[in-house]
Design a protein around this nucleic acid. Structure first.
Lengths: 356, 356
DNA sequence: ATGAAAGCGCTAACAT
DNA sequence: ATGTTAGCGCTTTCAT
C-alpha cells in the first residue's frame, strides 16, 4: 500500500500563490477579509493545481465534516431490499438528499439504525464519534424516537425530523419537515366525493407512525364536512399486506359495504385489490380505490391505482437545505415546514354507480 | 454551534487505563506487542468509556479512512430514480455493499460520476481528495472506463471492477468480480430447449456493455450445442424499452417467428410483452419469454416473467470483502471471481406447442 | 513490550 | 487585510 498522502495540500497552494495558509483557507471557506485580487490569485492556484480540501483535515481542525447522516430503520429497510419490490423510500431519499448535499459540497451518508433495540444509543454514538457528521436526517419512525433525539442533542449534532410529531420536553425540537398527510387524505377523499361516492372506507396505518393518524384525520374531516358519517368505515391496518387483507375483507363483506376505499399505503391497497378480486368486485366498476405513497408497485396493477404521492425527494432535499442553512445561521427561523402531497389519478377510481 | 470536540478520545482511554496513547492505538488496531493483560485492561477502558476512534483523525495520521466509494453512472441512476420504477441495482448494491462494509467497520459512500463527460477526471479526483477512500467499487459501464481506472491508479486507490472486461494495458487490473452472464444465458436457453422450443429468439444489449455480448454468447453456444442454428433469431437492442419494441416486432413478425424469446434485460422483456399482446400472441401459450436481471418489474406483469437473476447484492458484498482483504495483504491472489446467476421460473415459459 | 516525539492538513485564535 | 501559532486525534517513526 504505502501511506497515501494528500497529493495537493493547502501548503502547495499557499506556496504557489505566494500567500499564507490562512489566506488560502479564507478563500476556500469564502470568508471575508481577503482583497478581491488576492482571492483571484489564490483561486487561480487552486484551479491550476486541482486542489480540493481534505474533509478529514477540515474536521480535525474543528470545522465542518461536510457529512450528513441519513438515519433509516434498519429492519424495515433491509426487509424491503430483500423483498426486492422496489424500495422507493430509500431511492427517493437518496435522489433528493444526495443531490442537494452535492450541491453544497456535502455528502449524505446512509446509515441504518435499529429502532426496537437496546443499543440504539451505542450504535448511534459510535456513528457520530466515527464520522462527526454536521447533521442528521431522521425518518419515521426514528423522527419521534426520544433516545435518538437525546443522543443527537447530547453530541450537539443538529437534526431534521421528517414527519415528526411533537417536540419532546427537555429536548431541542430540531428542524421539522413534514409531508401533508392530512391534506393528502383530504384530497383523496374529496376526489371520491366528487365522483359521487358516499360510503368511503379507510384502512389506517399503525399508531406508531404518527402520519397514519394524520391520514385518518384528513379523511374524517372531509367526510364530516360533507355531512357524512364514518361509522363502520374505518379499519385498522399496520402497513403490511396481511393487515390490508384483513381490513379490506372486513370492509367489503359488510352488508353496507363502501363503494370506495382509501388505503393508507400501497401494500394495503394491493391487498384490497386481491380481496376485491376474491369477492368478485371489479375495480373501478364496483369499487373505487385510492392508495397512499405512490411507490412503483401501483403502476403495475390492472388498472393502475389512483394514488396520493409522497414527495419524498423534495422533502429530503428541503431537510438537507435547512440543516446546512442552520449551520450558517443557528438562530434562523426553522419553523415547521409542510410539503404538499401530490395526487395521481389513474384507472382505479370511477364515478359511483356506473358499474355496480 | 460551538466547535464540537470528540467526546472521548484516545487520551481519555490512555489515562483511564494508565497506559500510553500508543498502547491504546495498538489495541484498537489489533497490533502485536501488547501483553494480553494490557490488552484486556485497555479494552475494558474502551468499553466503559464508550470510545470509538475518529476516522478523520485516523485518516489524518496516515492510516485508513474506512471509507469505500461506490461509483455509479450519474445519468442513468438519476434517470432511474426519477422514473420511479424501483431502482433495483442501487438498492441491491447498498444491501450487499453497506452491510458488508458495516461488518468490517467500513462505510460505503455512494457516489455518482458522469461517464460521458469531459470532467470525469476532475470529479473523481475531487472525491478522492475530499474523502481519501480506502477503495472504490466500479459498476458498469464505469468498470471499463480507462479514464476512471487511470485516476484511481494514479491516486493509489485500490479498486474492484464489477463485470469488467479486460485489463487495460499500463493500468493495474484491479479486483475483477463478475456475474456469470454467459452461464445465465445458457441456463435460460436450456430451460427453453427442455420445454421443447427449437426456435429461440434473442434480444441483445448494447455493445458498450460487455456483459451484453456474454449473454449472446451463452445463448448461441447452447443453441449450437443442441444442433440448432440461430439465423434470423438475433436482434440488437440497447436495454431501452423502445429498442425492445423494435426488436420484438422484428422477431415476431417473421414468417418463421420464434416460439420463445430471451430478452437481455427487463425493459426489453416488457416491451416484448407489449408487442406479443399487440400481435395477438398469448404468453406463454403462443410465446415463451425469459427476461434478464429480475428487477421488481417482472413480478407485476401477468403472467409474471421467468427470469435470470443477477446476484447484485452478493457480488457487491464480495467486491467489498476482497477490497478490504487486499488492504491487509496487497499481494494476495485476487484472481477473477465469477458469481453464479440465479434463475426464477415463473409463468411466462411453457412447453412448446401446448397452445399456439 | 512499552513509551515519547513528530507530524498528517487544516482552521480558530491571536497577532500585526 | 494578512500572517503566525497552536492544536484537533491519531499513527508512525524512533527510543527505551
Amino acid at each position: 500500500m504505502g501511506r497515501r498522502r494528500q497529493a495537493v495540500t493547502i501548503k502547495h497552494v499557499a506556496a504557489d500563490a505566494g500567500v499564507s495558509l490562512q489566506t488560502v483557507s479564507r478563500v476556500i471557506n469564502n470568508e471575508p477579509n481577503v482583497r478581491p485580487e488576492m482571492r483571484e490569485k489564490v483561486q487561480a492556484s487552486i484551479d491550476r493545481l486541482g486542489y480540493v480540501p481534505s474533509i478529514a483535515a477540515q474536521r480535525m481542525s474543528g470545522s465542518r465534516s461536510y457529512l450528513i447522516l441519513a438515519l433509516n430503520d434498519r429492519e424495515r429497510t433491509i426487509a424491503d431490499w430483500r423483498a426486492r419490490q422496489g424500495t422507493d423510500w430509500v431511492d427517493q431519499m437518496l435522489l433528493g438528499g444526495m443531490l442537494e448535499c452535492a450541491e453544497h459540497g456535502y455528502r449524505l451518508i446512509f446509515e441504518l439504525v435499529d429502532t426496537h433495540n437496546d443499543h440504539v444509543e451505542r450504535e448511534l454514538t459510535a456513528a457520530i464519534a466515527a464520522l462527526q457528521p454536521d447533521g442528521a436526517i431522521l425518518t419515521p419512525p426514528h423522527s419521534d424516537n426520544p433516545k435518538i433525539l437525546a443522543v443527537l442533542a447530547r453530541h450537539k449534532v443538529p437534526f431534521a425530523r421528517i414527519g415528526a410529531q411533537t417536540s419532546e420536553k427537555g429536548l431541542p425540537p430540531g428542524i421539522l419537515v413534514s409531508m401533508d398527510d392530512e391534506g393528502g387524505a383530504r384530497t383523496a377523499t374529496r376526489h371520491l366525493l366528487d365522483l359521487g361516492h358516499r360510503r368511503i372506507g379507510f384502512i389506517s396505518g399503525p399508531t406508531e407512525y404518527r402520519l397514519a393518524g394524520k391520514r385518518v384525520e384528513g379523511w374524517r374531516a372531509e367526510m364530516e364536512a360533507a355531512g357524512l358519517g364514518v361509522d363502520g368505515l374505518l379499519e385498522a391496518g399496520d402497513f403490511t399486506y396481511q393487515s390490508g387483507v384483513r381490513a379490506a375483507r372486513a370492509l367489503l363483506t359488510r352488508p353496507d359495504r363502501p363503494s370506495a376505499i382509501i388505503a393508507s399505503n400501497d401494500q394495503m391497497a394491493l391487498a384490497t385489490v386481491e380481496i376485491a378480486d376474491e369477492l368478485g368486485l371489479s375495480i373501478p366498476a364496483d369499487l373505487s380505490l385510492v392508495s397512499f405513497d405512490n411507490t412503483p408497485l401501483v403502476r403495475f396493477t390492472r388498472p393502475a391505482l389512483t394514488a396520493v404521492d409522497q414527495p419524498i425527494a423534495d422533502t429530503t432535499a428541503r431537510a438537507v437545505r435547512m440543516l446546512i442553512a442552520s449551520h450558517r445561521k443557528p438562530d434562523a427561523d426553522m419553523g415547521p415546514v409542510v410539503m404538499p402531497m401530490g395526487f395521481e389519478i389513474r384507472g382505479s377510481t370511477a364515478p359511483f354507480g356506473k358499474g355496480g
